[in-house]
Design a binder for these strands. Structure first.
Length: 414
DNA sequence: GATGAACCGCGAGCTCGGTG
DNA sequence: CACCGAGCTCGCGGTTCATC
């Protein structure tokens, strides 16, 4: 009846044995992230799990009667700057499929920088605003619980008893639950309580209806209120657009963008209607070489924080543009320019896509395929390279209406 | 000094090519 | 032709650097 998909088995045991899942027969299965990462195994994932994995893979997915009922992502890193958003795309991937998502993240972690005393690096509170936006749009829970730490009891990091593990408190049962958060902590107890509510709700109302009604549940409403309060108390009056990654965005009238893209228009081709249908445009400016983490997650978060009004990218109030390079706004000519700072080129994007094509079996002959390749071939016949591109290519092309490089551009017509 | 933003090291799993 | 070790890709969990 229940099936737990995991990337770390001890974390699966930790969740099962600390919640009402322990009273049921639970099957555990290893989860494979993508066809690019696990070419020999990914095609054995069932379709409803692949849909969630399409954007990015969470650490755990629990399903009931072949329908996912929640997912969990756990991180132990210091949440300064855009780091807290690094795993945001997988929260989005879950919720976009109507699957409640849990995100476990430290309120703070102790970092000892060279030549300095240990200090607490605190979570960027904008993550709470991003999760709230996701809940507003999908009416599905996206809840953050703190990875237990010494931060509240020991504001002085040097005095923290768990300084050897960055101030983080791991489960005392290191044999059964290595690397797992302390299950006796109040934060984890609250999370187990919420998980039990989901199990109960899907028992009572069935899986689909049980998921949809969850935001009315008192336990979950109380967590949502807690998260809103955390955002307000930790943002200390700073406006959301002053916090990373929103602080890395520029807002322009859309006709500036269209004037810029006009360089690609010919007598036979004009830019399609989608971009022009929105008056304003948000540009996420990344001054870095072309790469993945943490930008895919940050881009997804910006979409929910600043652009989206509905369940798909078609329901955006503002265009969402990703730019690798320095963006200059030219008010005189009502356009923009992209200048190279870190050598990122549209050729990097193209070679990442070309590299993924190595996973493509579609040009093979039947006689080339051994039996163990047939099922994978058949999946690719149906889905093309949907699952065999690297993560950041999948996420960027899903979220961005256009991607701009100093030496080239990509955009959607519709 | 606080905070935002870019870069790094490592392991799992796979591929590939040399070798007996 | 089976085996196996080297090296690569991908994704993970972070730290350091830059800037105000």
């Amino acid at each position: 009846m229940f099936r737990v998909w995991y990337s770390t088995e001890s974390f699966a045991d930790f969740i099962i044995e600390n919640t009402n899942l322990r009273h049921d027969n639970v099957v555990k299965n290893r989860m494979y992230e993508s066809d690019a990462n696990n070419p020999s195994r990914f095609h054995t994932m069932p379709d409803h799990i692949r849909k969630i994995l399409y954007l990015d893979a969470p650490d755990l997915i629990v399903e009931r009667d072949k329908e996912p009922i929640f997912s969990i992502e756990v991180s132990t890193e210091a949440g300064t700057g855009h780091n807290a958003f690094q795993r945001f795309a997988r929260v989005a991937a879950s919720v976009e499929n109507d699957v409640p998502a849990f995100y476990i993240y430290p309120e703070g972690a102790i970092i000892t920088r060279r030549g300095a005393n240990p200090t607490w690096d605190r979570i960027n509170p904008l993550i709470f605003q991003a999760l709230e936006s996701v809940m507003n749009i999908y009416d599905i829970p996206a809840l953050l619980y703190y990875f237990p730490s010494d931060i509240a009891a020991f504001p002085d990091a040097s005095a923290a008893p768990h300084i050897g593990t960055k101030g983080l408190i791991y489960d005392p049962d290191i044999v059964r639950y290595p690397g797992c958060p302390d299950g006796t902590s109040s934060e984890m107890q609250h999370m187990f309580e919420a998980i039990n509510e989901i199990i109960t709700s899907t028992s009572t109302h069935g899986v689909i209806a049980g998921r949809i009604n969850l935001l009315r549940n008192l336990i979950i409403r109380s967590r949502r209120s807690f998260m809103q309060a955390q955002f307000h108390s930790k943002s200390l009056g700073r406006a959301a657009n002053e916090m990373s990654p929103a602080s890395a965005t520029k807002h322009i009238p859309t006709h500036y963008l269209l004037n810029y893209l006009a360089q690609y228009e010919t007598p036979n081709y004009s830019i399609g209607e989608l971009l022009g249908s929105r008056e304003s445009t948000v540009i996420y400016q990344v001054n870095a070489a072309f790469r993945g983490d943490p930008y895919p997650g940050a881009l997804a978060a910006i979409d929910y924080l600043l652009c989206r009004e509905g369940k798909t990218y078609e329901d955006r109030r503002y265009n969402l543009i990703l730019a690798f390079g320095h963006v200059e706004i030219d008010e005189q000519n009502e356009t923009i320019s992209i200048t190279d700072i870190n050598g990122s080129s549209i050729l990097d994007f193209f070679s990442a896509v070309q590299n993924s094509e190595r996973h493509n079996l579609l040009t093979k002959n039947y006689s080339d395929l051994e039996s163990n390749k047939i099922s994978r071939y058949y999946m690719q016949v149906r889905y093309g390279s949907t699952y065999s591109k690297v993560k950041h290519i999948r996420v960027y092309s899903y979220f961005a209406d256009a991607i701009l490089f100093p030496d080239g551009s990509l955009w959607r017509d519709a």
